[in-house]
Structure formats: structure tokens, C-alpha cells
Amino acid sequence: MTDAPKISSQGHAWFARTVGVLLVLIGAILAAGGLWLALVRGSPYYLLAGLGLIASGALMVRRRVLGAWVYVGVFAATLPWALWESGLNGWALIPRLFGPFILLLLVAACVPDLTRDRAPRRASLGLALGASALMGVLVIAVLLAGRPPRPGRADARSSALDGGGGRRRLARLWRDLWRPALLDLGADHPG
């Protein structure tokens, strides 16, 4: 992914600046909506992520490689947040991680545009590969977690009619974290 389109010279860094503008735009939407959400007592994630994206994008527009590292920081915080919110529920992870991951690859591809130093350029390549590998591992984990439960094993979650006592809800959350019956890929392969 370090093979950034060679449409720009390092002097102008058009590619990186375009990505920077994109980050600022997305960040502005997230920050504005996230502020609204936080004001109605919702999750603060979107506000914080939006501010992070604005900072990172603005720095990249100014051709500062620091902007790329700020985005890496946003992504590094997003990953555990997404897992904390959704566990290994594959479909629930898609909006939380897919877009941010694509942006991460774009940002990593911008690094050669932003600096001549070898170390950060290598780091960005390693980052792109490492993040891709991590996502691959996550996909496998999601698929494993989503395998249909063995027949005969009653799913307590579904038969529970409880209004949800604190401890039981925690237990349910814990169970959902590790065994969401969502992506049962296997179940729909005929034969």
C-alpha cells in the first residue's frame, strides 16, 4: 500500500492532501453529529473520533506526517471500543471497523507523500500489513464465534424471559461477547 499513486510530487503531496480533506470532512460530520449525540446522553465516541479525524486531516493537509500518526491513534482506540461494544458480532463490527480500516489503509498510503525519511515510510508499510493481518484474524475469530451452537444445547439467552437483572445481563453480555450466533457461514452452505 506504500505504492501511492505517483500523481503527485513529494513537494505538493496532492494525494495526502486530498485524503486529508476527506478526513476533515468526515471528521466534521462525526464531530457535529457526535456533539449532538453526546448532548442527548449518547456515546461520546463519535465526537472524540470526529475531533481526531479533523486534527489528523488538518495536519495532513499541511503536509505534516504527524497527521497520519494521529489517525493511527484514532484507529487504535476505535478497535478496542468496537470490540467492547459489539464483541465478536461480525455484522455489528462492520459499521464500527470497516470504514475506519479503509481510511487507515489510505492514510498509510499517504505517508510516503508526506515524508522522505525511511523509518516512517517503513513503519507505514508495516502498519498497513499489520492492520490487515489483524483484521484477517478478527474475521476468522468472528466466523469461529458465529458457528451455530451444537444441537440440543439450549440457548439460555433466548428462553430467558427475565427483565434482565444486573448480573444476568452481565452474564448475557459476556456470553454474547464470545458466542454470538450471527455469522453462521457454515449453516448456509448446502450439502
Binding site: 462525526l30 453529529g33 449532538w36 442527548v40 449518547g42 463519535y46 473520533a49 459499521p95 470504514g99 434482565g164
Partner: peptide, 25 residues
């Protein structure tokens, strides 16, 4: 299933998911 929470909100990206979360709130 158990009642919905803000975390149950979905989308294809953080943006539409955020809009759903605002709607939820």
C-alpha cells in the same frame, strides 16, 4: 429478544450508525 440499547444501532459506516444512535436517543 431483550430490549434495544443505543449499542444495537447499526449502519454501514460510523456516520449512518451515528445518525441512528441520535434517533434512538
Amino acid at each position: 429478544k431483550p430490549d434495544l440499547t443505543e449499542r444495537s444501532m447499526w449502519g454501514m459506516s460510523p456516520i449512518d450508525q451515528m445518525i441512528c444512535r441520535i434517533q434512538y436517543r
